[in-house]
Nucleic acid binder design. Sequence first.
DNA 1: ACTCCTATGTAACTTTTGTTACCGTCATAC
DNA 2: GTATGACGGTAACAAAAGTTACATAGGAGT
Lengths: 214, 214
Amino acid sequence: MPQEISDHIKKFHSVFEPGLLNEIEAISMLMEVRGGDTMLNPGQTIRAVPLVLDGTFKVSRINEEGQELLLYYVKEGESCAMTFTCCMMAHASVIKGSAEEDSTLLCIPVNVMDEWMSKYPTWKRYVMTTILNRFTEILKSIDDVAFKKLDDRLVHYLKEKSKATGSSLINLSHQQIADELGTNRVVVSRLLKKLEIDKKLLLYRNQVKLLSEM
Amino acid sequence: MPQEISDHIKKFHSVFEPGLLNEIEAISMLMEVRGGDTMLNPGQTIRAVPLVLDGTFKVSRINEEGQELLLYYVKEGESCAMTFTCCMMAHASVIKGSAEEDSTLLCIPVNVMDEWMSKYPTWKRYVMTTILNRFTEILKSIDDVAFKKLDDRLVHYLKEKSKATGSSLINLSHQQIADELGTNRVVVSRLLKKLEIDKKLLLYRNQVKLLSEM
DNA sequence: ACTCCTATGTAACTTTTGTTACCGTCATAC
DNA sequence: GTATGACGGTAACAAAAGTTACATAGGAGT
């Protein structure tokens, strides 16, 4: 088990200083989750900060009616800015976090966060970079939702998804896509059909294949 | 001049520890700005972190076409989360910041930020709280834009504005309101008219008076 | 094969929002 | 006073997105 952590942690050798790496290895916990598992729901309080070692996580916003909207993905080597801030303030989560695929997490207990912020410059830097990146991503989401038409958002979403999974074949139903964009299935079917006619993609049952024209 | 700072800084006596207050007093700079002045444009790099001592600031997002969208207000005693993170990372700003009214700022040089984060727990707490609050506000903006219809957003905007200025009489043209909501003047006029008919408000030239029915 | 459930395609319609155009009003400068 | 420009009201229309309803197709299980 300890070997496993030190193995995984190698990815962070260029990011964190040796002392910090040792502490991480000593104190953190390895965790495997299944694709689709929800790790964090709005209102929940977080007891450990997750670093993503392997896989991809999805962070989304749920409104009062339970409608979901994708905010961003957290990938290998990254962490979740919201979780950092919520943790440090012992505040309930305002987002939902779930695994996109089978993933591996490194869970760091909350109580060391404060100390590490003062003690390890690389940790502080990592935290602040994560926060800045997320601010930027969320602002991009706002731009999308506020200024872009749904067809653009759909194309952008499909490209992101393809990038996240590393494949041009996307395994999603129209309903699932609609949910993540916060819209309606019929609308998505309509737009997808238009994109297919324009030779931007191919439609199959539960699958969308992006073509190079995208 | 130094008296002025120590006067203003009294507001923070319960927030910051004495040593920090002294440092702030010694190192920071008082700054007066006019309502409407733009302090920060997207792409600019920030050299000092502003604490708002008096007045209100507006933080907004500008898209490629130059269209603006209000994100949130920064009020007395508060600071801007984006600025913190951009400063600490020496990153260009991704937002626009402007004074809503004549305001007073306390400008803290960037270079002490890092040190203070480690040295003063109250400073770290203040920074993290600011960031958390802004995340929450921005997510609310997303909810608004993504899920709410324009009439709801308009009502919400007017209420916020009224709260920010402390008056039920709002001094704005329909065009200005449209700009801040990222929409079109005619649409705003239409919705405002409907609200007036519903006895939610009264319309004057360059002014909107909110009624208790709001 | 038959059943059942889910996914997709599509039509018809409504609602919401955006656009263009035009007009009257108000404030200010001259 | 009159001219000018900003502001607000409104009509008419267009575009985008959401809604309802129904048909068809695919796949899993029996």
